[in-house]
């Protein structure tokens, strides 16, 4: 009985640690099936030819996310053909932010002509598992022997406010290194973003 309790305790502790930290570079990531703006579900396994993925947690309402919309589109334009498509996920609770509703995601994607899928994480489970805390929050995954390995976590670049003043393109650097089979030199970066609003249970 005591053992069982100890195991149970460890189990709970490990769950809570996993929840507070989320994925770090080197971790295995899960696939998911989430509803796209066209009504169809999208999974990473649908992309047979992909070498990996640029998973971006983003949303409509957040000014930091808005500032990056065109740069996310550019990432997709540049890297989807090289095997790393952008998969954007909105994890926000639309009750807290009506601007982040499914209908508004469709509207926003149509207005901005997104060429990448824009998925709704209705249960917020994907964001929680990945450990996304804010928007935008990028996870670059690489397919290694049928597993998804996290290679980069963090920001798109070093200047949210002004794309033309960017000095370090963190995500692009990581992608270029991955495409050349090199180790990612800076696998984790920090940025300010809008906290993801979690649903009240």
């Amino acid at each position: 009985m005591k053992h069982l309790l100890a195991i149970l305790f460890l189990f709970i502790v490990s769950i809570s640690i996993a929840q507070t930290t989320g994925y770090k570079p080197g971790d295995k990531a899960i696939d998911f099936s989430l509803k796209n703006i066209d009504g169809k579900n999208v999974s990473l396994k649908n992309y047979n030819d992909a070498k990996g993925y640029i998973v971006v947690f983003t949303c409509n309402h957040c000014p930091y996310a808005k500032a990056y919309e065109s740069r996310i589109e550019e990432l997709n334009q540049k890297y989807a053909s090289k095997g790393y498509p952008v998969i954007a996920i909105n994890p926000n609770d639309p009750v807290a932010y009506p601007e982040d509703s499914y209908e508004n995601m469709q509207k926003n994607a149509a207005e901005k002509h997104f060429t990448f899928p824009y998925l709704l994480d209705e249960t917020q489970n994907v964001a929680k598992t990945y450990g996304a805390l804010k928007t935008p929050h990028v996870y670059i995954l690489k397919k290694v022997n049928n597993e998804l390995i996290v290679k980069y976590v963090g920001a798109i670049d070093d200047n949210t406010e002004s794309a033309k003043d960017v000095k370090k393109k963190y995500a692009e650097n990581a992608l270029n290194e991955l495409l050349q089979d090199k180790t990612v030199k800076e696998p984790e970066t920090k940025a300010i973003g809008c906290g993801i609003k979690w649903k009240k249970n």
């Binding site: 929050h137 070093d158 920090k190 300010i192 973003g193």
Partner: peptide, 19 residues
């Protein structure tokens, strides 16, 4: 300032979400 330069000095546990 570029958050990547200061967040880790300030509190490495913080992911950068406000408030």
């Amino acid at each position: 300032e570029n958050p990547n330069n200061w967040i880790n000095k300030f509190n490495p546990q913080w992911g950068g979400d406000i408030p």
